[in-house]
């Protein structure tokens, strides 16, 4: 009896080996290599296999990095809040309207995701750039005389492009979450005496927690590592940690780039833990 169970277990284990290997090779080995590199001395072009904490000392003492880290968080948090403020009402109305029509409109909102992301960033340049649509409009209306550069190459531009980039990823989880709440639930709350505002606070908001958690994992955390958007439209005020890491890694200063990557990874992990602490694991799979 006991041996039979053991055989089953061993079989199960063996049959799982390929998928475990797959995860190890594709996800963890690169990370381990990067971790190792982060403990080597900062050298250009080469990795010198000598253990040192120099990079980490650098990361924790250079005030410049803090500034950029704070900037990164500021941009991502503002973008997330704006995304939720814009995305939730859209998802809410889509979810409460006729199912068919709602799903169709949702589909058309998602289509832009299929367009290459660089093309979309350049499209924003056409609107927000120095010779862009917005400046031309303001000049022709006589509001300004010379084209302004603050729309582009600023943290505001990064936020705008991030919102554009991620909006579908915010609407979809909200939509899926909200269509799962039956009309009867709202009717019941109303029948028990709740006003619209009270229903929103006591029923809708707690029930979309899973969507908010999904959005944090799907949008906020990946955005912390964003480098292309700040690189292309961020300018000085829109710089983010990802730009810095990219600069080091592509400049072949692997060690310091790796250390910064790890710094970001650890922060991300801590953030994830906090989110899970607040919402609980169940929020990911139940409502």
């Amino acid at each position: 009896m006991k041996t039979e169970v053991d055989v089953k277990r061993i079989r199960m284990f063996i049959s799982n080996i390929p998928s475990i290997l797959y995860i190890l090779i594709l996800f963890y080995i690169p990370i381990v290599i990067l971790l190792a590199i982060s403990f080597t001395p900062p050298r250009k072009f080469i990795v010198e296999w000598v253990f040192t904490l120099e990079n980490y000392v650098n990361v924790f003492t250079n005030p410049n990095y803090y500034r950029i880290l704070l900037n990164t968080f500021w941009i991502v948090i503002v973008a997330t809040i704006m995304l939720i403020i814009i995305g939730f009402p859209i998802a809410y109305y889509l979810a409460r309207m006729n199912r068919r029509l709602g799903a169709k409109i949702l589909y058309f909102l998602i289509i832009p995701v299929e367009i290459n992301y660089l093309i979309r960033v350049y499209a924003w340049k056409v609107i927000l750039g120095e010779n862009g649509f917005l400046n031309l409009l303001l000049i022709s209306l006589g509001i300004i005389e010379k084209p302004l550069t603050i729309f582009f190459y600023s943290w505001v531009a990064v936020v705008i492009v991030l919102i554009h980039e991620w909006l579908p990823y915010v609407i979809v989880p909200f939509y899926v979450n909200l269509v799962g709440i039956s009309d009867e639930i709202y009717d019941a709350a109303m029948d028990l005496g709740a006003t619209r505002l009270q229903i929103f606070r006591t029923i809708t908001l707690p029930l979309v927690k899973p969507a908010i958690l999904t959005i944090v994992f799907l949008v906020t955390i990946p955005s912390l590592g964003e480098f292309a958007i700040p690189y292309l439209v961020g300018g000085q005020s829109g710089i983010m940690l990802g730009v810095l890491i990219d600069r080091y890694l592509s400049g072949f200063q692997l060690a310091i780039g790796a250390a910064l990557s790890f710094f970001l990874l650890v922060i991300t992990l801590i953030l994830s833990m906090i989110m899970i602490k607040i919402f609980g694991y169940e929020a990911l799979y139940t409502r």
């Binding site: 039956s182 009717d187 019941a188 709350a189 029948d191 028990l192």
Partner: peptide, 27 residues
């Protein structure tokens, strides 16, 4: 509805899934 002396029990009950029995009943 909230000014009427009626209360309804729904076809699918419509309990608030994120609440305990106490919180549902006390709502």
């Amino acid at each position: 509805p909230y000014k009427r002396d009626t209360s309804m029990i729904f076809q699918h009950l419509a309990l608030f899934p994120h609440m305990t029995v106490y919180d549902n009943v006390a709502y």
